[in-house]
Each structure stands twice: as C-alpha cells, then as structure tokens.
Amino acid sequence: MLKDITIGQYFPGNSIVHRLDARFKIIITLIFIVMIFAANTVWSVAAAVAFLLLSYALTALSPSLMLRSLKPVIPVLIVTAVINVFFFEGEEIFRLWIISVTDEGVKNAVFMLIRVTALIVGSSVLTYTTSPIELTGGIEKLLAPLKVLKFPVHELAMMMTIALRFIPTLIEETEKIISAQKARGADFEHGSLRERAKAVIPILVPLFISAFRRAEELALAMECRCYRGGEGRTRMKQMKVKPADIVALAVSVIFLAAVIVIDILN
C-alpha cells in the first residue's frame, strides 16, 4: 500500500538526536556516508556500523521503524549483493558452469549489502528525526555560500519544503481517487497491459487537476502573506549551535578518523 512508504517521513520526538541542529545532522550524515564507503576491512566496517547503531539508539525510535524503511529496497539489496558475488577475482570457492564464486566476491557482496543497508538506515535517521522545515532550513544555510555564484538557494529550499509538505497530501488524495473510481467499477488489477495502462487515466487526470489547483491556491495564499522570495527574509526559529552539536560532530569525525586509520594499518 502507498501508506507503507516511510522514506522522508518525520517522527516527532525529543531525543538528543531530535534536538541536534539540522545543519550538523546533515554534515554528520555526509561524514557517515564517507565513513561507510571508506571502510574496507571487517573492523572498520564494524566501527562504522557501531556508529550507526549508536546514533539510532540515541533517537529512541523503535527498531521496527528501521526495518520498515528497508522493506521496499530489499529487492535492490539482493540484486546488488548477487551481482557483487560474481564480479570479483580471487580464490575460487566453487564453480557453477562458467560462473565462479570467489572468496573476494563473497566478501565484497557482504560488504556491499552492509554498506547499502547502512546508507538507507543512516539517511532514515536524519529524516526520521528532522522535520522537513528544519531539514530544508539546514540545507539552505549550508548552501548559502553558493549565493555568491547567483545560485537560487532560497528558491531551491522553498521548493523542497513545498514538495515534502505535499507528499502525504497527494498520497492521501491518490488513495481517495482510486477508491472513488473503484466504486464506479474501474478495474486496476485485471486485463492486458494496455488495458491496465489505460485504467490509470481516471486516476492521473483528477490527481493532476487537484495538484494544479492546490499549487494555485498555495501561490495565492503565499502572495496574500506578502511572500517575496528570500531577500531580507528572517526565520522564526534561529539556528543556534549548541555544545551538543559540537560534541556530536567531534564524535563522528573521530569515528571517521578511526575507520581510516584501521584501513591504513591493514
């Protein structure tokens, strides 16, 4: 069902991770991504995963949420792992016709599986604990230096805020339209591929119309409140760096350094 999508969803809370500054959380997530791809030995991967589990534990969110975020990508994970098994040279473990499975291949497959899983869980930690407004605010602040190059930072952030805001609304709307057309006897599950593609029209047309209508209403509402773009705009919630933010950043840098050192020593 459409409702099972949790990517980009925010779960309000009051944990240490929730209270961290969004800018720092974004940077820490980037550090973590570098960390997990830099890690190349069993110990360094273990260190990166430990870092992830530690941050997840600090969010005080239920572990089942972590599994839910992984559910939709299981096929991708499996394909990635299988492909990796076959494409590495090394000592042969066994042979299937022309395909040889090597120790290096298996090792790489396992690493890749852990990396992709950690990547998804890691970015979920960010989105689960940061409200869309804070997230885009953070991105806007981090990209602010690009304004010098005439890059429309504020506009980009505003577009992201609006897009994120409307994902749940449009999902709900789609479900309603599907039910309404089903009640008129529309059949989305049976028939040839061509018939099923045609059956989507009664969903798409009303959905587009409502999206345009909402866009128009939103634009009007923003204009009524004198929205004039980012020039001279102030924020209600000022972002302030707190000691906890520095500590969190320091811990992640230390973990990154540790991962690199372990790799070099091996």
Partner: peptide
C-alpha cells in the same frame, strides 16, 4: 460495486 453505488465526499474531484 454496480449494485451498491457509493458517492464519495466531494465527488467532483473524481471527474
């Protein structure tokens, strides 16, 4: 569904 008809709230959005 042809024998029990259902008109949703704001049905004009399904046109």
């Amino acid at each position: 569904r042809f024998r029990v008809g259902l008109v949703f709230q704001y049905p004009e959005y399904q046109l």
